[in-house]
């Protein structure tokens, strides 16, 4: 565990908490892509199946459970409890265009052709693009609430910090995982445009509004 990994995980945790609190406090999931949230639930489920097969540390186990519970909790709030506030007219990204290529890629490029390993690989590929329906929704409506922007910033920062963690581990521990690294780079790059808008607008107290 190094500082980049810890900050990355905390940023990830913060993102998940911001999202749950936003929905809970405002009693609304307006502006949030249910499709992205479905993809994230699939990501955590596929990746954290190893909860039952391998023990790393209490920290890992607790965090995995938190992400799983938070993710299904978010789905519950969006699709059941506050279903009426779900903005499905603007949430139209076709997720099969993301899921199917990730399945095929996981079957072709993986470390080991075993069920758990392929599911892990699939989750890494899917996570890298899972935010696209949300970004598509923001671009479609042309704006995002500040709280949604904070959520996206924390979520984007998390994998960015993991990139520094992987650079550190390469030198300090001689450890690297090309699948995670390349997917992590893709994931972080997808947020770049949003990061720019966040820093130039939201941090100056303005609403995130895309140029017309």
């Amino acid at each position: 565990m190094n500082i980049f990994r810890l900050l990355g995980d905390l940023s990830h945790l913060l993102a998940v908490i911001i999202l749950l609190l936003k929905i809970w406090k405002t009693r609304s999931c307006a502006g949030i892509s249910g499709r992205s949230q479905i993809l994230f639930a699939a990501v955590y489920t596929a990746r954290y199946l190893d909860l039952v097969t391998s023990y790393i540390s209490a920290y890992n186990t607790v965090m995995k459970i938190v992400f799983l519970v938070a993710s299904y909790g978010t789905l519950y709030l969006m699709f059941l409890k506050f279903k009426a506030t779900y903005d499905h007219n603007h949430d139209t990204f076709r997720i099969e265009f993301l899921v199917l290529p990730c399945v095929i890629l996981a079957l072709l490029i993986n470390h080991d052709f075993s069920a758990l390993e392929i599911l892990w690989t699939f989750s890494i590929y899917l996570e890298s693009v899972a935010i696209l329906p949300q970004l598509f929704m923001v671009s479609k409506t042309g704006e995002a609430e500040s709280i949604t922007s904070h959520y996206l910033f924390a979520l984007g920062t998390y994998r960015g910090l993991y990139l520094f963690n992987w650079i550190y581990r390469y030198y300090a521990e001689d450890h690297y995982d090309l699948i995670a690294i390349i997917a992590g780079i893709v994931q972080t790059v997808l947020y770049c445009d949003f990061f720019y808008l966040y820093i130039t607008k939201v941090l100056k107290g303005k609403k995130l509004q895309l140029p017309a």
Partner: peptide, 10 residues
């Protein structure tokens, strides 16, 4: 050490 020898990250 690369890849598959136990994924110890989240």
């Amino acid at each position: 050490r690369t890849g598959c020898e136990g994924h110890d990250e989240l």
